[in-house]
Write a protein that binds this DNA or RNA. Sequence first.
DNA 1: TGGGTAATAGCACGACCGTTCGTTTTAGAA
DNA 2: TTCTAAAACGAACGGTCGTGCTATTACCCA
Lengths: 207, 207
Amino acid sequence: MSETSSPRRHGRADGQRRREQILQTAAQLATVEGLEGLSIGRLAEATGMSKSGLYAHFGSKQELQLATIDTARDIFIDVVAQPAFTAPAGIERLRAACLRFLDHVDQQVFPGGCFFSSVAAEMGARSGDVHDRIAREQLDWIALLEALATDARHRGHLRADTDAAQLAFELNAVIVAANTSFVLHGDRNGLERARQAVEHRLSDAAS
Amino acid sequence: MSETSSPRRHGRADGQRRREQILQTAAQLATVEGLEGLSIGRLAEATGMSKSGLYAHFGSKQELQLATIDTARDIFIDVVAQPAFTAPAGIERLRAACLRFLDHVDQQVFPGGCFFSSVAAEMGARSGDVHDRIAREQLDWIALLEALATDARHRGHLRADTDAAQLAFELNAVIVAANTSFVLHGDRNGLERARQAVEHRLSDAAS
DNA sequence: TGGGTAATAGCACGACCGTTCGTTTTAGAA
DNA sequence: TTCTAAAACGAACGGTCGTGCTATTACCCA
């Protein structure tokens, strides 16, 4: 809602800008404090606003959480998914998706590593709209990997008997494990192991 | 400290029992609420105690968190690591470690899945004693898998050029991914995919 | 130039947080 | 039976949580 249907909106220096700026900060903070641990007060302090002024942008903490997830999704698409599509269709695009993921961890696009890995672990055993949204995003990401794998198979880059869903599961497993290792221990060994594993798994499935 | 060095016991019906009972509940709850989200009040309610009565067992929240980690570690060793050692040394023991891990997720030994996966994601981007303890436990687990892989290689069950550390990384990756998937979506597909991946990866490395 | 209104701030609320303290209960030692 | 000390409790603390309500600012448009 609140879509910019009319060309000129809101009163003064466009509060939508402010809102997006808040959400950018929220997405960063959530990977460290968690979506639940991220408090209005701390977020207000981080953005230099008052609690109530910030709160008025959302109306409830849950709406803030959901909007933060949307923002994190946009960032993820920008720095991981979209760039992968600059690679040639087929196995190279599948590989690019994995490598871009590892890069976005390496470059610390989020201070606490992959937003969705972090938040999925936090919300996994809970219930409600936030959990459901996270679960759906995670399914979408796996589905993207699987679609890329299927495409690669159709193009003859992978063996015809390749199980695309299984391959997607395993590729996601190693890159997420690298994320966890990087965040927890601060060294890049896991990232290199993941690159190795991706390469090995892809060449294993190649015809 | 407070080791039972002298024969004389504590005051009355041994409060150590109570303490362990509290910690069992804490370990369960922490996989759902998180180690930070787990509050003294909620834990007191779950154990049927008063806040202050429970608090007296630990003295600070951090000590409670560290004690909870110790308890979770004991449980993990009991239901995953130790049982794996009933399998014959070598590749079968390595496989057993992975399968026992998947079983303990499947049987919901903890309501929120693997304790350490859950807590590692939460504390990964933080600092302090709790983070350090979690990081060390995670390294110990990977080291165990690597030691089992090395042993399997020495016994000729795996090819001589097998990279044990890389194999341990990849095996851990798929079983942890299965845990995440099971907790987040509640279905067993990921567990089956992980069993498949473990089998495939082991036979791939077998001579 | 003077409303109209979106954006923000100030303030206060009830609830819960971790923590402390003094008191009561209770089991075993004397 | 009395004494002692561990174990648990109840109440309260300062602080922060999410959340409202009211006022004030600052821009856009007429």
